Each structure stands twice: as structure tokens, then as C-alpha cells.
Measured scan of single mutants.
Amino acid sequence: TIEDAIKKLLKLAQKGQPYTFGDFTVTSEEEAKKLAKWLKKQL
């Protein structure tokens, strides 16, 4: 689910690992949080 993807994304971001989700490449926890907010709006 999208919720699971968001959780995984935040965990990876906390470890400092870049994470690619579709067109987004997230390289920081701050970016992960922005992406998570955006994804929730898409639901």
C-alpha cells in the first residue's frame, strides 16, 4: 500500500539512503516527509 511505501521511505531516509519512488529521488528525511505529505494528498 501507499502507507507501507511511506513507512519504508521514511526508514530509508533516516539511514541516509537515497530512495527512488516513481519520478522522485529522496535523499533526506526532510524530502521524504514532503513526499509523504504529497502522497497522502493523492489518496
Rank of each mutant, 00 (worst) to 15 (best):
30 E>R: 07
8 K>L: 13
8 K>N: 07
38 W>V: 01
3 E>F: 15
3 E>H: 11
6 I>R: 01
28 S>F: 13
23 D>S: 13
5 A>N: 02
9 L>G: 00
13 A>N: 03
21 F>N: 03
35 L>P: 00
12 L>R: 08
29 E>S: 05
34 K>V: 05
33 K>F: 11
29 E>H: 09
11 K>G: 09
20 T>W: 13
25 T>H: 11
21 F>W: 13
33 K>Y: 11
32 A>V: 06
38 W>S: 01
27 T>R: 06
41 K>N: 08
42 Q>H: 07
31 E>W: 14
41 K>T: 06
17 Q>M: 15
5 A>F: 15
35 L>K: 00
31 E>F: 12
8 K>M: 14
2 I>A: 04
17 Q>G: 12
1 T>R: 10
31 E>C: 15
17 Q>K: 07
27 T>S: 06
43 L>A: 05
32 A>W: 13
39 L>S: 00
23 D>M: 15
26 V>Y: 04
5 A>R: 08
14 Q>C: 15
41 K>R: 07
16 G>P: 03
40 K>G: 06
33 K>N: 10
11 K>R: 10
42 Q>E: 03
30 E>C: 12
30 E>D: 11
25 T>L: 13
38 W>G: 00
9 L>E: 00
37 K>V: 09
21 F>V: 05
6 I>D: 00
17 Q>F: 15
22 G>R: 03
12 L>H: 05
18 P>D: 05
43 L>D: 02
9 L>M: 09
29 E>P: 11
6 I>Q: 00
14 Q>K: 09
31 E>L: 14
27 T>W: 10
30 E>Y: 15
3 E>C: 15
3 E>V: 14
32 A>N: 01
13 A>M: 11
13 A>T: 05
29 E>Q: 07
6 I>N: 00
35 L>N: 00
39 L>G: 00
22 G>F: 14
17 Q>L: 15
1 T>L: 12
31 E>Y: 11
5 A>G: 03
4 D>Q: 12
7 K>M: 10
30 E>L: 09
2 I>S: 01
25 T>M: 10
22 G>Q: 08
20 T>K: 05
34 K>M: 08
6 I>S: 00
35 L>M: 02
20 T>R: 04
43 L>W: 10
28 S>Y: 06
31 E>R: 03
17 Q>S: 07
27 T>N: 08
32 A>S: 02
17 Q>H: 11
5 A>Y: 15
39 L>T: 00
23 D>A: 13
20 T>M: 08
5 A>K: 08
5 A>D: 02
34 K>Y: 07
33 K>Q: 08
22 G>L: 13
4 D>V: 04
26 V>I: 12
24 F>S: 03
7 K>L: 12
23 D>G: 12
26 V>E: 04
9 L>A: 02
16 G>A: 06
35 L>R: 00
21 F>I: 05
35 L>G: 00
4 D>P: 03
24 F>C: 13
13 A>P: 03
30 E>H: 08
3 E>P: 09
35 L>C: 09
12 L>F: 12
